Simulated assay, not measured.
Amino acid sequence: MISPNLDIPEHPERPYLSVVVPAYNEEENVVPLAEEIIAALTTLPGGFELILVDDASTDATAHRIKQLKHPRVRAVYHRINCGQSAAVGSGFQAARGEWVATLDGDGQNDPADLPAMLEKAVHDGVDCVTGVRRKRQDNFIRRFSSRVANGFRNWITGDQVSDSGCGIRVVRRTALREIPVFNGMHRFLPTLLRGQGYTVAETTVNHRERLRGTSKYGVHNRLWRGIRDCFGIRWYLKRAVRSDRLDETRK
């Protein structure tokens, strides 16, 4: 845990951590999850902000977000449904913190993991810490399709990510400046960061059952789309100009 005695001054306009949560038709989850995040980060040195991104939900998600009056909560609303990666990208653009964290909007990621992940990133001197779900609470089909897609991703991209589908991560905000936003980006974020020359570490995290609402993903839009996207990522990695090389050129 980050020590509460750590001397990080709090600036309302420049919080230490920005937490981005994309939400689509999560009217039952968005308020309880926001309350959990606030409780988990109340004593965080340097302060935090919570950015809830409503991806043009057709239920009462936007209304629930507007009911939240906490001073650390900010909201972004999409006019049309653009997908989870676009919602995450909108949150990245709105973030003001030195570090940016992401969680899925379904409540299966545990906000209590965030302080330890941030502490690991700072202590290890890395640009990103990504979660690896411990005792994953999903049905067999979802676990199997994710395992197949994850292995295929690593084979095609040449990267080694233990759980690319895990939505809880902590990333240095400056490392996000050149990450392209496309449908599926959130699943490849660790690989994209490494492709730009940034450092990524992994840590085990808690995973919970979905208690409310319904999943937006199945075999079609998770397994097959992810496998197809791998070829695009391989193309991008071979042609990307690494940020660390640009920095060396400027010196």
Rank of each mutant, 00 (worst) to 15 (best):
L50C: 01
F48P: 00
N81Y: 10
D127E: 13
L17I: 02
P71V: 06
A121I: 09
N221G: 06
S57R: 01
L44I: 04
Q137V: 06
V53Y: 01
M185D: 10
Y77Q: 13
D59K: 05
E202V: 10
R208V: 02
P45F: 04
S85H: 07
V19P: 00
H123W: 11
Q93E: 15
S3I: 06
D247P: 00
P111F: 07
C128Q: 12
S146P: 00
S243A: 12
D55Q: 02
V161Y: 06
N25E: 12
Q108H: 02
A175Q: 03
V73M: 03
A116V: 10
Y77T: 10
V170T: 14
G105N: 10
N154S: 06
L44K: 04
P180D: 11
F92N: 06
L17R: 03
I80G: 02
N109S: 14
Y24A: 01
Q160I: 11
Y77N: 06
R153F: 14
Q196N: 14
R96L: 13
I65R: 04
E248N: 06
V31I: 07
L44G: 03
V53T: 04
V19H: 01
V170S: 11
E36V: 00
L50F: 01
R173L: 14
L189M: 15
N183M: 12
F144C: 04
G158F: 09
V148A: 06
A95K: 05
G125Q: 08
I65V: 10
G213R: 04
S3Y: 08
N139E: 13
I2R: 05
T174N: 14
N81P: 02
L237P: 03
G125W: 07
L193H: 05
L17G: 05
S90C: 09
H220V: 14
R136D: 05
C166H: 07
G218T: 02
P32G: 00
R64W: 01
R143K: 15
T199E: 14
P9Q: 08
F92T: 04
Q84R: 12
Q137N: 02
V200S: 05
V30L: 01
N154P: 03
F152M: 11
K69E: 12
T191Q: 11
P12Q: 11
T204I: 00
S146Q: 15
A112G: 05
I233T: 03
G46H: 01
S18M: 03
T42K: 10
I8P: 01
